[in-house]
Design a protein around this nucleic acid. Structure first.
Lengths: 333, 333
DNA sequence: CTGAAAGCGCTTACAG
DNA sequence: CTGAAAGCGCTTACAG
């Protein structure tokens, strides 16, 4: 036998399909016993409503989309997990769509996507969330969306982010509390907004303790392992070196750690190293890396929430808490 | 103005909607100039067909699903990338669905999923691809599916895998060619089929060179970093130690490397280490890890291919090539 | 609190 | 090579 439809359920419960529809959508104005009869029929027939029929007839598709163009599978993977879990809880489904934001007509691609799929909302991950053309297309189409950790137009539309500056401030404070007064800093990719925020947190923490900022201890990185190696070589070149280095992300911190090892420095005895991200690798290296855990899955879960609850249309913003993971790579000065 | 429909296109091209439908689906029997007129109307109106309407009226939904229940975000992320790219090329969309295969009614969950979504096919990743209940549900529903790297029922349904045994054979051969005659081996999780295949490859390579298998050089691991550390401690306890260790995956190889470092052994001078997987970490540690690159994205792309082309229904199987990544962690005995 | 009718935008099966 | 009609399984707007 083929799938049961709303007609079958209506017949089994001796009501009209409209009443079944009411129960399906949790609408009021259905007598309790009628509702019970319909629920029983649904269970007996193993009925599951057709998404495409609901989508075509109504205003909702129960589909959310996640747009991304990101080289880091771990980051994107984490975002997907958080979003898809929340979707499942709410009876929604998640469609993932990689994009190439360098493509000239990426805006049209997104427009077509929204048009064929009729998604109820879109989660935009960095750097897609900062693409003016895509945002314009969605605004025009009236498709709700939530931006995750956007760099530009900080007040545009709904968004979810974490407190990069606060986290960097707290991590720097941890190093200061351990007695470090000469703390090197490796900046992240200059095009990435979080880079500036993290540096600001570092600078503010030093200022709060009256420790002078030394420009020769600050190196520009690009978030890559390789740029971390270069930064490490610059910072650890001579005998006059910092007692701690705070890198704007884990990949760079790992690069510094490999330079330290190569130079025969023991971490954290000779040098404390801190990172940012809490990647999977952070716990695999030895010593394990002290770092900031980003609430990646939680951010996309919150984004899905805003889309499902309707908060996205109101342009709501959420700031999620981070967590400082103190591990073996940092110690007393 | 709202979205154009097939009716608008038909009117603009002065044909019936049926003829537009023919063009949309690439059917034959449309006069070239009629086709050109319709194409022009589609472009002019910016027409994109509605997926839900097509799905409801016809046999195809243009939706593929990826089912997983895997702790490794990198592995799942790689699979998603490969599948979604292929979907995009073919005008399909990918829905991702995490599952908990420990849940007693996971079969019903999958049945409901297939029922609401009407996906054209499902990609089953390990360990979902080995769940008898889920396979039974899909067989009964008649939903095409492709299993990725299945452990059990090796001949059931369409599947895509890589040659684990061949890769382990070749990696062991590489170590032998470098002069190693005392090669330790760390087995993977005993519940994972690939574990056995990789061990078989190792054993076969030794046998081919007339090198005896030493049971005291073989340690049972569980694919985790921690189990690698334990294996390393067992294998490197005394002065009588192997000159090379081949671990069944990178995480364990990394655990061994950290033990070697802690014991003051220099890799690869004192000990060669090889892994399996080519995780992101493999290139971040120092020295970089010699390992086997699994064609993860390629496997799921092939799976999507089989689903889209119809090969899945024929139960086709594909074996994809691996790649040996020779890096710094291995060297002459 | 409940229902009859129309319609969402396509494809199917059939006719010509 | 092309088209008129029915129907997919729901929700909407309305009536009672």
């Amino acid at each position: 036998m083929s799938r049961a439809t709303i007609i079958d359920v209506a017949a089994a419960a001796s009501v009209s399909i409209k009443t079944v529809s009411r129960v399906l959508n949790g609408e009021p104005n259905v007598r309790p016993d009628t509702r019970a009869r319909i629920d029983a029929a649904i269970a007996a027939l193993n009925y599951v409503p057709s998404l495409s029929a609901r989508s075509m007839a109504g205003a909702r598709s129960f589909l959310l989309g996640l747009l991304f163009d990101n080289p880091s599978p771990a980051y994107v993977g984490g975002l997907q997990m958080g979003a898809v879990r929340r979707c499942q809880q709410a009876g929604y489904h998640l469609i993932i769509e990689p994009l190439d934001i360098e493509t000239p007509n990426v805006g049209q691609t997104v427009a077509d996507l929204v048009s064929t799929l009729r998604v109820d909302g879109l989660i935009l991950t960095p750097p897609v969330c900062d693409h003016a053309g895509i945002l314009a297309v969605l605004d025009q189409a009236g498709t709700p969306y939530v931006r995750i950790a956007p760099d530009r137009d900080p007040d545009r539309a709904a968004q979810v982010r974490m407190d990069d500056k606060g986290a960097a401030y707290e991590m720097t404070g941890l190093l200061l509390a351990q007695g470090h007064r000469d703390i090197g800093f490796v900046k992240g990719h200059p095009e990435h907004g979080a880079s500036h925020l993290r540096f600001e947190g570092y600078a503010a923490a030093l200022a709060a303790q009256g420790v002078a900022l030394r420009s020769d201890r600050i190196v520009q990185g690009r978030f890559s392992f390789r740029s971390g190696v270069e930064a490490g070589e610059a910072l650890l070149a001579g005998p006059d070196r910092p007692t701690a280095i705070f890198a704007s992300n884990d990949d760079m911190a790992l690069g510094i750690m490999s330079v330290a090892n190569a130079k025969g420095l023991t971490v954290p005895r000779d040098l404390s190293i801190a990172g940012f991200d809490d990647t999977a690798t952070a716990q695999v290296v030895w010593p394990q890396l002290t770092t900031v855990r980003q609430p990646i899955a939680e951010m996309s879960a919150a984004a899905a929430d805003l889309l499902i609850s309707g908060g996205a249309r109101q342009g709501e913003a959420r700031l999620l808490p981070y967590e400082i993971m103190v591990r073996g790579s940092t110690g007393p000065a």
